[in-house]
């Protein structure tokens, strides 16, 4: 397995493409140059740092450091979920629901694949566990944040319909069902679209990376298929848990709709 190694100097020329974007923003008065500069610097720093961190983790092969890295990844994912919400859940649940469901879904699916398919030695080997978790986490996070966003907005928008159903003796699950279905559909949709378009419209990053690193395309495809199945499972599990949990949090034991538990709408 051979691949063409890159030096940092090799990245200067491609980086000029980003500079070109900044110049375009200036010329067309898009006012994106500041955001673009910050995003570019963040990306470079974050990726270089993560490169060093992964090098350390792969050398250490320690269950403690691997678990710590996984927890930090989940915490960042839950923060991203909260930031993307137009209307937030109250207090602890604002972060707790997203973090809990992300951990449940991505953690379960990652461990499942490590124990049943990949069998690394040891089973938690960070070279396998962390990249897998990262890819599943990213997609699960998107599903959960979309699902929760559609859920909270749908409950506010459909309040009259939900309360009409409740007033006529419907249970909270009967009353919320149309909104729950919408939220679940929205959460699953990016994964389904991604699966449908993969290979025809886009070549996935991981597969491309493996091919560039010298892996036979058909072997890279097998890995990619494994990842896609795991992503589909993780996203389904996480979105389901988050949407059902959100529905339960926004109603109470007396089958009342509790929109007072949602924070005010955030602009932007």
């Amino acid at each position: 397995m051979t691949y063409i190694q890159l030096a940092y100097g090799d990245l200067i020329l491609p980086a000029l493409l980003v500079v070109m974007d900044g110049a375009l923003s200036l010329v067309l008065q898009l006012r994106l140059e500041r955001q673009l500069a910050i995003a570019t610097v963040r990306m470079v720093v974050q990726l270089v740092l993560v490169g060093y961190v992964l090098t350390f983790l792969f050398t250490a092969v320690s269950p403690f450091w691997t678990a710590l890295a996984a927890v930090i990844m989940v915490l960042f994912a839950s923060r991203e979920i909260v930031v993307r919400q137009k209307r937030r859940l109250p207090g602890f649940w604002s972060y707790g629901l997203g973090a809990g469901c992300t951990l449940l879904a991505a953690g379960t699916v990652t461990i499942f694949s490590l124990l049943t398919q990949l069998h690394p030695d040891p089973w938690y080997h960070p070279r396998y566990a962390l990249p897998l978790l990262g890819m599943i986490l990213g997609n699960t996070m998107t599903g959960i944040s979309l699902g929760l966003d559609v859920l909270t907005n749908g409950l506010v928008r459909e309040r009259a319909a939900i309360e009409a159903c409740l007033a006529l003796g419907g249970t909270r699950y009967q009353a919320l069902l149309p909104v729950l279905r919408d939220a679940l559909r929205s959460g699953f949709m990016p994964t389904i679209n991604g699966m449908a378009a993969i290979g025809l419209v886009s070549l996935p990053g991981m597969m491309t990376g493996q091919i560039l690193a010298g892996v036979e395309p058909i072997d890279a495809v097998k890995y990619q298929l494994l990842i896609m199945f795991l992503i589909a499972g993780g996203t389904g599990l996480g979105t389901l848990a988050a949407v059902m949990g959100g529905g339960r949090l926004l109603t109470d034991h007396r089958h009342r709709l509790r929109l007072d538990r949602i924070g005010a709408e955030r602009s932007g």
Partner: peptide, 19 residues
């Protein structure tokens, strides 16, 4: 149970909702 209560004590809003 709340659903049973509301089947016996039923509230009708001025602008009923539709699902």
């Amino acid at each position: 149970p709340a659903p049973l209560w509301r089947k016996q004590v039923t509230y009708l809003a001025a602008e009923p909702g539709w699902w």
